[in-house]
Design a protein around this nucleic acid. Structure first.
Lengths: 339, 339
DNA sequence: GCCCGTTGTCGAAGCGCTTCGACGCTCACT
DNA sequence: AGTGAGCGTCGAAGCGCTTCGACAACGGGC
């Protein structure tokens, strides 16, 4: 495995064919007789041949690498981001592509550089804000891209995400169906709303619209992430709205603090207060009581993003926006209606 | 930015020099007159030239890309892993390198492929276990690599990590200095120890050795991560060891549950029980009370790993093992000694 | 039996860059 | 004035691969 690497010329010599024949066997772009193909593949295996990525990229004008642009912003729940990231990597490998990790600290220059140098064939952008400088850059880039999340103006772009508006509404519908009339949403930290992060705002809108539509009474609040602040917020809420019987929590970090705070204030879940969370299943399942939840299907979103990107790379037309339908799983935290 | 990309030949023509001259200006590998250099750089700027990564890699046998091998295993604290990852990316960029993200699901094949195809010049491995199949592969690879974490046998490898043995001991020393005689360690989930994850075991050893050295009494336990289990573990501990006055927690996820459990059992921190955590500063600061802690300097470790890798790429000799000295920050959770 | 369309293979021309050797200068010394 | 050592620049040879056009060999249709 050390020393100089095996080249396609050595494989060709070993198999007694031309270099181009080896190439065609490997790419399948021309018909090759079964016999020749077998001989070539045998040689590939015995010599341990791996095509040189640089040479391949140069000749084919395809690097077989996509960029994953992943800023790490305050208030984002890192484990969920990593779920997206790993699902993108796994999906990319299924299309024989690798993933280059780009972070925020280079700003848009990193994106421009990676694209202009043909380091990557396309890009997947995560953590998209409503007004996001990177998005304008993408529009002028020759390289195709897919966004995970929707900016305010998604025209000319390809975006995938969970339908957070529906997710917010779905929580309300579930609680309304159980007879709850007075609900509250505890959302992301306020900094996330101020920054204009689409998914947070859309859940909020979905929640408030559904509350209106069902003629319920609802209050939506940002939610910070220390136990102290959560406890204070929950305490204030219970005091100012004593008739509150249900809570929607859209904040992975705060979920457990919310449960702790309810415990602290002597409220039982679900008997006194029903709770629905928008969070990964493992968080919902490990809470006590296990929480009724809408999960963010990171796996599906990442896979879909890669699929769309590969379609664009092949020149196929793709829809501008893909919204995944949320699904709600009922667990113990909403087993019963209000007293 | 669309259409065909600018090539070095166009830059050369625009600047009125030879292609090789442009190359030398950009790489600095030969002396170039100030005047020529300026003309070339001007042309580079006005044309918006970015060297083609594939061509460069092919000709120079250097991809200027390193691999970050990041398995996501159960029981690992993802935010901390991401701190490592971003710090590696940031550091790599300072050496003009990009980072290719490799995950676990390809196993060692992914590593072998990336190395053999010259996709990457070197590798950084994270989340290293004591007996790790990937490690044997690294030894036979021509490409240099650096591990974040130490396997059982680090011979022939380059490893960096926080000195977790010292970290465990440091917590004990701090508590001993405050007069505590009866301590407990709540560690990682048991699956992490069973898997043979070095840092978890080393903290454990550092803790128990220090306890012995100081003639104290100590008990070390794995710690699961749901509130229920933590509460049960803490409850059991307080019951079986009523004279316990100090807790060391080496589990980012469980830290807050531990505090919640102590609250639940009517113990005040630090008056009844002192708590020291090994976790990132932001977790320690946001707890209530803020926790005395030893932080895992992910930033430093990642930067150091990249520095070592670059040294190896340049053919410089590097130390086999680098252990970073832990630092303990005193906060409210250990302000006083035992009653 | 002749023509033509397939099928399978080959050789060669790049892809855009780095790097090596060559070469013409300019200067500081004899 | 003559020599040799840099210095600055150039041209050309690859790096290892893909892909295009060419071309045998082979049948099937007439």
């Amino acid at each position: 495995m050390s020393g100089r690497a095996v080249t396609i010329a050595e494989v060709a010599r070993h198999a007694g064919v031309a270099v181009s024949t080896v190439s065609y066997v490997l790419s399948g772009k021309r018909a090759i007789s079964a016999d020749t193909r077998r001989r070539v593949l045998d040689s590939v295996r015995t010599l341990g041949y791996h095509p040189n990525a640089g040479a391949r990229a140069l000749a084919s004008r395809r690097a077989n690498v996509i960029a994953l642009v992943l800023p790490l912003r305050a208030g984002m729940h890192v484990p969920v981001l990593m779920q997206f990231a790993t699902s993108v990597v796994t999906a990319a490998r299924r299309y024989d592509h690798d993933v280059l990790l780009l972070t925020a600290d280079e700003g848009t220059d990193g994106i421009r550089r990676a694209a202009a140098s043909a380091l990557v064939d396309g890009l997947v952008l995560m953590d998209v804000e409503l007004h996001d400088g990177r998005v304008d850059l993408l529009r002028e880039l020759a390289e195709p891209s897919v966004l995970i999340g929707f900016p305010a103006d998604p025209s000319g772009l390809t975006c995938v995400d969970l339908d957070f508006t529906r997710a917010g509404a779905l929580c309300v519908e579930h609680l309304a169906g159980l007879g709850h009339r007075k609900l509250a949403l505890l959302g992301a930290p306020s900094v996330v709303y101020e920054r204009g992060t689409g998914f947070a705002r859309r859940t909020w809108e979905g929640f408030t619209e559904a509350v209106d539509r069902y003629g319920l009474s609802g209050i939506a609040l940002p939610c910070e992430e220390t136990f102290e602040e959560v406890a204070a917020a929950v305490g204030g809420l219970l005091e100012s709205h004593p008739d509150l019987t249900a809570l929607v929590v859209h904040n992975e970090t705060a979920v457990n603090h919310v449960l702790g705070a309810l415990r602290l204030h002597g409220r039982r879940v679900p008997e006194d207060v029903a709770v629905v969370a928008i969070c990964p299943d493992d968080i919902a399942e490990r809470s006590s009581p296990p929480l009724t939840s809408v999960l963010v299907p990171a796996e599906d979103v990442g896979r879909e993003a890669v699929r769309l990107l590969m379609d664009k790379l092949e020149g196929r037309a793709v829809p501008g926006g893909t919204l995944l339908e949320p699904r709600l799983t009922v667990r113990d935290s909403t087993r019963s209606g209000p007293a």
